[in-house]
Design a protein around this nucleic acid. Sequence first.
DNA 1: ATTGTATTTGACTGATCGGTCAACTATAAT
DNA 2: ATTATAGTTGACCGATCAGTCAAATACAAT
Lengths: 198, 198
Amino acid sequence: MGRTSNAKERILDSAQQLIHARSYSDVGVQEICDYANVKKGSFYYYFPSKQELTLAVIDHIWDQFQVTLQQTLNSHLSPLERIRHLPLMAYQINSLNINEEGKITGCPFGNLATEMSTQDEKIRLHLDNIFTKIVSQIEQTLKEGVQCEEIHPIDTHSTAQAIFAYLEGIILLAKTHNQPEMIKALGGHITQLISPIH
Amino acid sequence: MGRTSNAKERILDSAQQLIHARSYSDVGVQEICDYANVKKGSFYYYFPSKQELTLAVIDHIWDQFQVTLQQTLNSHLSPLERIRHLPLMAYQINSLNINEEGKITGCPFGNLATEMSTQDEKIRLHLDNIFTKIVSQIEQTLKEGVQCEEIHPIDTHSTAQAIFAYLEGIILLAKTHNQPEMIKALGGHITQLISPIH
DNA sequence: ATTGTATTTGACTGATCGGTCAACTATAAT
DNA sequence: ATTATAGTTGACCGATCAGTCAAATACAAT
């Protein structure tokens, strides 16, 4: 049976790094293999296609990200404070993910969603599911806040969507300006989205 | 002198459509030429590179978009109402821009910024400038609102950035969900971003 | 030692990538 | 008619694209 080879993991890691730092279309299978020290024949032993690899990469990133998100949204702080920390979390992640040309790489999900939603339905649905998970975790935090009366009664679902959209938006601005601090600066507005629409 | 050939315009239009519907890396020069009924040799008579074409395409899109943005931000409505109409404008544009596979294509600037900011510095700066222009037009409207006391005194610059970021964010969510109505639905939250941070 | 399976390798396919270029044609001015 | 310029064409470049495959190798169980 042969215990799980680490070639597959190296491919996954390489693909994650390269695609996040650039884009799906710009990174070829050959380059991923070179980076992972694996021959292309082996790549197609582990993955049936570049599409399937990408699906696996998305899951791989989610597994890691989900931990960080949980830490932020399940901390000891009050619900509203936890929401307030979301931009700081995004800022920290983006400060770490600087590519070799000194550019911030943005949100890997947002990047792939932008690039692939019009091109690959399977990938689009995969990312849509991840977005739904993120939104529902934000919504859960909002519900807690409403319950303990820290937050006024609101439409928690659309507010959670709005918060997530705002996060993706400020990450895009920061990426285009190549200035991670923009995430922190604009992040301060995030709690304004939490209030009853009058 | 020979009056401006329309080959160049056909190339520009084709590139705009194809790149907006898919992505920069996924659309090749040959495909653009086929779509424009132009031979590749002619392409390189008019444009020195794919990069320069893309810069021209961005300007081309901006010229069109700027008109629509002006109409929205300089209408007869009150400043706050004009801001409120931004998501509706985005919704209308995105409802029109459906590709042949039935997918909404999102914001052409946001798409290119996401894909190219880490790959091409010239394109990144070009898009950054356009973002600055959009933000400053939003800020101008906010300033009017503050002046006529429809809007509480706020940091108009960062608020304008926040509004633009939010717009980009909801367009991304709508694209990933392939549901233009999401822009309208989440757009309702946009005015919450306009209030003094307490 | 033999068998079966897991993994790796490198050569290969046909198509496409961005870009170049010399030759050609069309047009207008003189 | 001649010349100059503007625009067009198709063949071509080396590199790379995603994907295939038969053969070689490694390894474990018997």
